[in-house]
């Protein structure tokens, strides 16, 4: 009896059933023990603490407050600001990080000279610590010694008066740009892996039938890449939604919370700030995880609907 597997890989008939369940237990139990302790348990903790007004390590002051935290959220302008910034992150990353990565993956896989070199170069920012990137870009974007402003001055222009990271409506987009600069190599890498799994014969035969490079890309390559593209989009948007290190080291969420994202706000409320509001911060974390799950499910659903439309 063949059972479908989640990832579409074929199960190799009855011989996979030979090993006894006890051995499977031996293999998986240790990891699942850690899963339960360090992930499932804290996740339940998140759900519980999110409905309390807990402020510190001692549980004696803990009080269940029902939906109070969520009502507080509705009137908290910093919460809305943080979510707005995080959604901006997701939107820009889906549009540009995945878009640019797809463009370069297709170009590099069409086999130009030095493709390997460029692939390596694009991936380099991804291996650097975000602390280094965050602090380094503070210098590069500085209004006096930063290279961007030096270049602008060379052509007679002026950068923003308070610097790229100090100007409120602008700084979010600057942080997003740095995030994309760092991560698009990774996205491109996933897409290249997907492209290399596409059988060459399909493209060869289409080319023999007289398809142009553009038709080849839009009619054959991208439809066949759909599954990997969806996985890449989901990973990209989760990464964008939970961004912390970069924002923390670039702007610290400031000035005046203008570049705060959801996770920096949670950190500030629950872990890093002077007055800790564990209950409220955890409630926001709960909203965050629901948003992430909703976003991922939505993307997978849209992809499935899209696939149905193509096959009809």
């Amino acid at each position: 009896m063949r059972r479908p597997t989640l990832t579409g890989g074929s199960e190799k008939g009855p011989q996979t059933g030979r090993y006894d369940g006890r051995f499977a237990l031996f293999l998986i139990a240790p990891a699942f023990f850690f899963y339960t302790v360090f992930l499932i348990l804290p996740l339940f903790g998140t759900v519980v603490i999110g409905f309390t007004d807990w402020t510190g390590i001692s549980f004696s002051t803990l009080r269940f407050t029902g939906l109070e935290n969520f009502i507080q959220m509705a009137g908290d302008e910093f919460f809305w600001g943080a979510f707005r910034n995080s959604f901006l992150f997701v939107a820009c990353c889906l549009l540009f990080q995945v878009g640019v990565a797809l463009l370069f993956a297709v170009i590099l896989e069409s086999g130009p000279r030095y493709a390997r070199l460029f692939r390596s170069i694009f991936f380099v920012p991804f291996v650097i610590s975000l602390v280094v990137i965050g602090i380094l870009f503070n210098f590069l974007l500085d209004p006096t010694i930063g290279i961007v402003d030096i270049l602008l001055r060379a052509v007679g222009l002026d950068g923003p008066k308070f610097g790229w990271l100090g100007t409120t409506t602008l700084n979010v987009f600057v942080v997003i740009a740095v995030h994309i600069w760092r991560n698009f190599g990774f996205t491109m890498f996933l897409l290249i892996a997907g492209l290399q799994a596409i059988p060459r014969e399909l493209q060869e035969s289409a080319r023999l039938d007289g398809a142009t490079a553009w038709q080849l890309t839009t009619r054959i390559t991208i439809p066949l890449l759909r599954e990997v593209l969806v996985v890449a989009s989901v990973i990209t948007s989760i990464d964008a939604m939970r961004v912390f290190d970069l924002v923390y080291t670039l702007t610290g969420g400031g000035p005046f919370h203008s570049s705060e994202t959801v996770v920096t706000y949670i950190y500030q409320l629950g872990l890093g700030g002077a007055r800790t509001q564990h209950g409220y911060a955890t409630a926001i974390a709960l909203v965050l995880v629901l948003v992430i799950i909703g976003m991922s499910v939505l993307q997978f659903t849209l992809a499935r609907a899209g696939r149905g439309a193509v096959s009809n």
Partner: peptide
């Protein structure tokens, strides 16, 4: 994969 470690930070 959909539960980043930042979400469970406080209980953890």
């Amino acid at each position: 994969m959909m539960v980043p470690m930042q979400v469970t930070a406080i209980p953890t």
